[in-house]
């Protein structure tokens, strides 16, 4: 699963908040309560999201109306799964605090900890 850019996330949040089909103008107005974006910027972002399969669109007169293809919960769950998978990757470029070990190994570890705790 591919993640989203900062602006893409903001646009998706707007579409998730109001699940009905929305025009570029509607999304722009919702976003511009906090920022100052150009119409063409939002149009480009929605176009990219359509290409990536995050939104579907239907023609309405001269403009398109956009709808999110999956709901927020599914998107978050998928992203979470992808992140957890990446953290398991042994060749990963990220550094983990500890990798999980097998039950047998974890038994050995617990015993080692008990032994040294008893020594002290």
């Amino acid at each position: 699963m591919q993640g989203l850019g900062e602006l893409e996330t903001a646009v998706m949040e707007v579409l998730w908040r109001d699940p009905g089909p929305q025009r570029v103008r509607d999304v722009l107005d919702a976003l511009n309560t906090e920022r100052d974006l150009a119409y063409t910027t939002v149009m480009t972002v929605l176009d990219n999201l359509h290409r990536k399969g995050w939104v579907s669109r239907e023609r309405d007169g001269r403009a398109y109306r956009y709808v999110a293809t999956r709901n927020r919960e599914d998107a978050v769950a998928n992203a979470l799964r992808a992140l957890l998978d990446s953290a398991k990757d042994p060749e990963s470029v990220l550094l983990r605090f500890a990798r999980s070990v097998s039950p047998r190994e974890s038994e050995v570890l617990r015993r080692a900890l008990d032994d040294t705790a008893a020594d002290q």
Binding site: M1, G3, G5, T9, L83
Partner: peptide, 11 residues
């Protein structure tokens, strides 16, 4: 890049 993109959604 990929981590950032996913974290924006999930974190």
């Amino acid at each position: 890049q990929r981590q950032l993109g996913l974290l924006r959604l999930a974190a």
